[in-house]
C-alpha cells in the first residue's frame, strides 16, 4: 500500500515540477565551453569580409532574412519565419593572420538550439557557401 502511494505521488510531483515558476533564464542551460565547441568552426582563410559574405549567403540559402550585419565587429543576426520563428546570430572573428573563426547560435521560439547535429548542418551549408564565394560559382 505504501509503495502504491509513492507511485501515485510521482505523477503529481512530475506535473507540478514540470510547470513550476522558473527563475529568469539569463545564463542559459548549456556548459559554456561545451556550447562554444559545438557552435564554432575555424576556417583557413585570410578574409574576414568574404567569410561574412559567405555567412550571409548561407543564411539566405537557409531561408533567413538579415536583421543586422556589422562588418567591423563581424556580427550577423538573422530571422527565419517559416512555420515557426527561428533566430540566429553568427560572429566572425579573425584568429591570428591565417584563420577565421565562425560561431553560430540559434533559437527557435523560446528554446535555444543545443543539438550538435543542427549546428553541424549549418557548418556543412557554410562550407559550401565559402567554396562558392571564394570561387565565385553560382
Amino acid at each position: 500500500m505504501k509503495r502504491m502511494r509513492i507511485m501515485l505521488s510521482v505523477p503529481v510531483v512530475v506535473l507540478f515540477a514540470g510547470c513550476a515558476l522558473t527563475p529568469p533564464d539569463v545564463t542559459g542551460a548549456g556548459t559554456q565551453l561545451e556550447m562554444r565547441q559545438i557552435q564554432t568552426r575555424e576556417y583557413d582563410t585570410l578574409d574576414k569580409q568574404l567569410t561574412m559574405r559567405s555567412v550571409i549567403a548561407t543564411l539566405q540559402d537557409l531561408g533567413f532574412t538579415i536583421d543586422q550585419a556589422d562588418s567591423e565587429l563581424g556580427t550577423v543576426t538573422a530571422t527565419r519565419l517559416h512555420q515557426y520563428s527561428m533566430r540566429m546570430t553568427v560572429t566572425v572573428v579573425q584568429k591570428g593572420t591565417e584563420r577565421v573563426s565562425v560561431r553560430a547560435n540559434a533559437r527557435i521560439g523560446e528554446d535555444a538550439v543545443t543539438d550538435p547535429a543542427t549546428y553541424q548542418d549549418f557548418f556543412v551549408a557554410l562550407d559550401k557557401a565559402m567554396f562558392l564565394t571564394l570561387h565565385q560559382v553560382d
Binding site: 540559402d61 537557409l62 515557426y84 527561428m86 540559434a106 527557435i108 528554446d111 538550439v113 543539438d115 547535429a117 543542427t118 549546428y119 548542418d121 549549418f122 556543412v124 551549408a125 559550401k128
Partner: peptide, 8 residues
C-alpha cells in the same frame, strides 16, 4: 527543435 532546422 526540428531535426532539419538548419539542413539545406
Amino acid at each position: 527543435i526540428p531535426e532539419d532546422a538548419l539542413r539545406l
